[in-house]
Amino acid sequence: MNIDLKITKLNQIRDKALSDIEKISSSDDLNKAKVQYLGRKGELNQQSKELKKLVLEDRQQLGRVINQVKTEIQQVLTTRKKELEQSGTKELDQTDTSLPGIRPQTGFLHPSTQVMRQVNSFFRYLGYSVYEGPEIETDDNNFAKLNLPLDHPARDLADTLYIKEPDYLLRTHTSSVEIRAMLNEKLPLRIVVPGKVYRNETTNTTNNSMFYQYEGLVVDKNINMSSLKGTLVALAKFLYGEEVKTRFRCKYYPQVEPGAGMDIQCTFCGGKGCPVCKHRGWIEVLGAGMVHPNTLKACKVDTNKWSGFAFGMGFDRLVMLKYGISDVRKLYNGELVIEEIA
């Protein structure tokens, strides 16, 4: 066979390929063309198979031409592919603005952290510092210095988890941290103490052996029941809304004297009495009082110069109320999932 004839044939293949590829408008067709011309059984490979029938000189010449044609076709394919891609994205960008935006994957704070931040910010505004302390405590800091000597009947109020009875225990309230603050910090003092506390209680939907407490302490000159009450009423309004009805009443806690409790009127029944408020019409939300002189003295605070108030509340109920969680155990067992609904 004449080698010139073959070269003409190759040029025809190239011309046809180039004009075909120019007209192609989809990447699927582009792939088909690639197979048609450059594939293993493609037209150019068919030509290559006939090379071995030729003498060496012709073989070399024709081989070069085949490679040149291959390269040309390949280049055109690549160029066309890019063109197609570009025109495609251009059009997508311009025409469909309703495609969802690509959103970053962000996490969420635990609900308790979210509520904690709100309450902390309220107290921060009033000049309080968030103060922390250990959870493993001594009897002295958790009870004795809080005017709760060994064998005091009010110890019934807290079923204690002991590490080494009676010396080491898990704090049953964060009041122990207030003791540490009075012992270790300069006066005056204005702190809030949020944190984990522990009770040896049977776990159910409303009680867990670990829960969060939120306490506060102010030691200063001219601290009195009025400043306590004003603070608590402001807190109740912050937590439950300006319209909340509060009740400030006498209540016994060993570490304070006078002692006080604050209730809010039940929002479910408007005070008429219902299962939520255990038919009381009111829901206890806070315990408080003026720091007991015995406690101040135990912390080496000069009672002639200083007085103080303290308050404390269970924290988890606030979180559960806000997020509609009915089982306290779900808060802290690693099974809480937050999802966006937008």
């Binding site: 009033l126 510092s129 603050a181 300069k186 204005r190 001219n222 400043s227 400030f248």
Partner: peptide
């Protein structure tokens, strides 16, 4: 009557900041 106790706030300026 605890309900008759006036409501007030601690009057002193905020003390030292001892945030942990």
């Amino acid at each position: 009557g605890y309900d008759r106790i006036p409501e007030d706030l601690p009057a002193a300026p905020p003390p030292q900041d001892i945030q942990s």
